[in-house]
């Protein structure tokens, strides 16, 4: 608590003031969130309210806990045995870390796209269909697959080879397939961990365009190490940094324009302008 006070409250609440008191709503609200891997505190005291149907970028130096924070938002950290989470993360007002909450249910509502495309070693069709099937979808599967692939701007490229292995697609296509797979189960939020970092610039551009389109219907939180990318696509930006114990914390969270033009923190400015470290 005292630590939280030392940090100027202004920076975060200005975002709240600018947004929250208006008509906007929040998709994810993290309060006092911290993550430990064993005894190592990877992230500490994150208070962050992510607006609905916007793209929020998380930037920061490597190792500052961006992926860790992202994983907290849909309980993927549960899968790491040593990980322990404190504080709370509210999704539609429910603390997803409450004992009564089912992580499986959470992940169905809050989808995830990973740094390296990880299609299942199945057909393209099956990759999209599988998630919906296990979640009890009983409708017209062909239609559903087509819809998801169209939303991921992949349909035209794969419509003739739906029954081929997804592993035969290019890296960019695989990543869009992973996005299609994620939106097929109709989540509220899509978490993306450096989704374009393994792709060439053209494939990256397509992913970025896709994210813009998707943000009309979904809340997107994207981790990126590429500041231009954050500036290009996001509405809000959260800047994380590490302290002397290598523990990550949220330095500044505001509208992207403000972060990149007029950051209120010195360290943010240093990082943005490349004077970091």
């Amino acid at each position: 608590m005292t630590v939280a006070l030392e940090r100027p409250a202004q920076t975060q609440s200005s975002q709240s003031a600018a947004y929250a008191n208006g008509t906007g709503s929040f998709a994810i609200e993290a309060g006092g969130m911290g993550v430990y891997y064993g005894n190592f505190c990877a992230v500490r005291d994150v208070d962050m309210r992510v607006p609905t149907n916007k793209i929020t970028a998380i930037i920061g130096p490597s190792g500052c806990g961006k992926s860790t924070v992202l994983r907290c938002f849909n309980r993927m950290n549960d899968l790491i045995n040593s990980a322990r989470i404190e504080g709370e993360v509210l999704f539609q007002g429910q603390n997803i870390y409450d004992d009564s909450v089912d992580p499986v249910e959470v992940r169905r509502r809050i989808g995830m796209v990973f740094q390296k495309a990880n299609p299942f070693p199945k057909t393209i069709y099956e990759n999209v269909a599988w998630g919906t099937r296990i979640n009890g979808f009983r409708g017209d599967m062909d239609e559903m697959v087509e819809k998801a692939l169209r939303s991921a701007a992949l349909w035209d490229e794969v419509k003739d080879k739906l029954q081929q292995s997804a592993l035969g697609l290019s890296g960019g296509q695989q990543q869009r397939l992973c996005i299609a797979r994620a939106i097929a189960v109709e989540p509220e939020i899509i978490l993306m961990d450096e989704p374009a970092s393994a792709l060439d610039p053209i494939a990256t551009l397509r992913i970025e365009d896709l994210m813009k389109e998707l943000s009309e219907k979904y809340t997107i939180i994207v981790v990126t190490h590429n500041m231009q990318q954050a500036a290009r696509i996001s509405d809000f930006t959260a800047f994380f940094s590490v302290d002397e114990y290598r523990t990550g914390n949220l330095i500044e969270f505001d509208e992207t324009e403000k972060i990149f033009t007029n950051p209120s923190q010195k360290s943010t400015e240093d990082y943005i302008t490349g004077r970091f470290g």
Partner: peptide, 19 residues
Amino acid sequence: MRGPVAGAESTGETVLGGG
């Protein structure tokens, strides 16, 4: 700063706190 978080916490039961 944490607004909603505190509000939800105060119920002691956060399950349906935010509708």
